[in-house]
Write a protein that binds this DNA or RNA. Structure first.
Lengths: 337, 337
DNA sequence: TCTCCCATTGCAAAGCTTTGCGGAACAGAA
DNA sequence: TTCTGTTCCGCAAAGCTTTGCAATGGGAGA
């Protein structure tokens, strides 16, 4: 059992004054004499007194904790965003309570419930890939519990959101492929109910159009974002009468699986087939060939999400959607020299 | 402002009974009549009553929160361990409060202090690479606040620890290199005050000895685990009159930097130089050539750490050190066919 | 010397839950 | 009818902090 923490009562009895006097002295209340204030603050410093957040929480009806739910904890994309949230939250004296949905809607619902039990002041969430119903979030909105979504979002009329410009990102990819003379561009997307899938498909179509390339439905595929399914799709794509000469995918997992399989089959990247991903710097630069990819401003997504969270706390009606721009970083995997 | 949560008082007034009766009914206290118990529990279920953890915490002097401090949040090694801790903690009804030391002792000290302010019931920590003084942890021990270390540990006479068998891991590497006819094996280690560095150096020496290879001090280097310094060391090593024909490094960052630089210089891996790392599956299998590496049982480290934490809670004197075994997974980067 | 006022400080309630103990009500027995 | 004994239930305190209001004491003015 941890030794009992020091309380106001302890300080008060040591100085033979009342608890309320100590409390006021510590916050420089004008009612308390200068002399006594000094004495109290000195003792508090020596004894290293820290107000009990439980008592404060009970009184103020707040915990200064933000619940954060992400699809998983181990992907760099999320951990980097979490790091950003944590940093900003800390600067405002808030802690984050972390929960993972493991990409499952059921676990996401459970996490919302758990965080609620822990009495977090609000939540910052990235939807699981399965999430296609939002009752659990509607409930939060109804109860006026501050909520912010990032990357994979919903209910954006009621909830502040931080997203990247998905359509633009894909347009950049298509433009780049086109400049490099790739003409049959395949896109392995994600579940259709996710905004990141939908918006990127929009970009795929408008990008093709812009480049004067015609849309071939065989080259637009959706997957569950897992390695296995991506492999199957690769197989399909390469069996096509007119197989793709360029591929891009919705995330790290998919695109590295694609690269691994292409290498296994002996297809040369980028000569025979170009590859582009949505990946992070670390992975992209250490792969061979180095991977051309859309860089997410992950840290910024985290920090921005936290910022919006505090705005939402102050203004319950606040529901802006912030769109962050991405940059296509061209590396070896998509440049035919 | 979030709508006020429901309290016992609300239930009590709705049923026109006292708060204490509601409280007892909810936990099936025999004093309360069967009938009334049923009615109370029914209402609580309908209203979705959840006990206020702040009030409980105040009463029981516990928060059911575990502080977790890691050197960084974005490295797969740590996020995977965190995931393990989170999973086990959740199964016991505990939350984790996450803090990052950013590999800085100063920030580590600050994190300890912050978590203490948040009144966590205890902490699970991996030391920052800078940490060579332990006063902040001695304080926790003195105050009997449960503490567990993993991977990078100290004070193991007082604190339960979870580590991998570092000496054995390196011996496996040396043995493997030797079997593959590599004879000049360089080791880029980490700061000497860290147990992982010290124990791996021990393994380096005993491994060389076991294989009948002679120790060349020029080939044993320490670095700060950052890319830049690793690069400088690579430069030194390759300038040696007798440069290494095999290299292994203390972590992902170092070894991928090494590989990148070797490739840049046109040295063939594994033909001209063998490479082995302490890495995780994802990175190791997606690199080219695929990286031979020591696999950390990361999830198990996390789960085990959490387990020890609960043991420590029950028994303040508990201070076992659990040593987990690692496995060398041989891939392309160190096999000369 | 008495009254009033200001400067200081203390009391108590609220926020929520648990739990020891006292109390009320009712039934059965004497 | 009265006493004993259950059976059920409520009071109140503890855990810690903040804050409106009451209270105390001393000094100043009349």
């Amino acid at each position: 059992m941890a030794k009992r923490h020091l309380s106001l009562k302890d300080l008060a009895s040591e100085l033979n004054i009342s608890i309320s006097t100590v409390s006021r002295a510590l916050k420089n209340h004008p009612d308390i004499s200068h002399e006594l204030t000094r004495k109290v603050q000195e003792l508090a410093a020596v004894r290293n007194y820290v107000p009990n957040p439980l008592a404060m929480g009970l009184l103020k009806q707040e915990t200064r904790m933000i619940g954060v739910i992400v699809p998983d904890l181990v992907t760099h994309f999320y951990s980097s965003i979490i790091s950003g949230i944590e940093e900003y939250a800390k600067s405002r004296g808030y802690f984050i309570l972390l929960a993972s949905s493991y990409e499952s809607m059921e676990k996401e619902i459970e996490s919302v419930s758990n965080l609620l039990k822990a009495r977090v002041d609000g939540m910052i969430v990235c939807l699981s890939k399965e999430t296609d119903r939002f009752d659990h979030f509607v409930q939060l909105i109804t109860d006026e519990i501050p909520l912010v979504f990032f990357d994979r979002v919903c209910l954006s009329n009621y909830v502040p959101c931080v997203v990247i410009d998905n359509k633009d990102a894909v347009e950049q990819i298509i433009r780049h492929f086109n400049e490099e003379k790739y003409r049959h561009i395949a896109f392995i997307s994600g579940p259709a109910h996710l905004n990141i899938s939908r918006d990127r498909v929009k970009g795929y179509l408008s990008g093709l159009n812009e480049s004067g390339l015609k849309f071939n439905p065989d080259l637009l595929r959706t997957c569950n974002m897992l390695s296995e399914e991506a492999l199957g799709i690769m197989d399909d794509l390469l069996k096509l009468p007119e197989p793709p000469d360029a591929i891009f995918g919705i995330n790290d997992m998919v695109i590295f699986t694609v690269m691994k399989e292409l290498k296994r089959r002996g297809l040369k990247i980028p000569q025979e087939i170009g590859v582009v991903g949505f990946a992070d710097e670390f992975h992209a630069t250490f792969s061979t060939p180095q991977l051309t990819s859309i860089m997410h401003p992950t840290r910024e997504i985290g920090i921005k999400s936290a910022e919006l969270f505090f705005k939402k706390m102050e203004d319950p009606a606040y529901a802006e959607t912030i769109v962050l721009q991405t940059k296509l970083v061209v590396r070896e995997s998509s440049t035919r020299n």
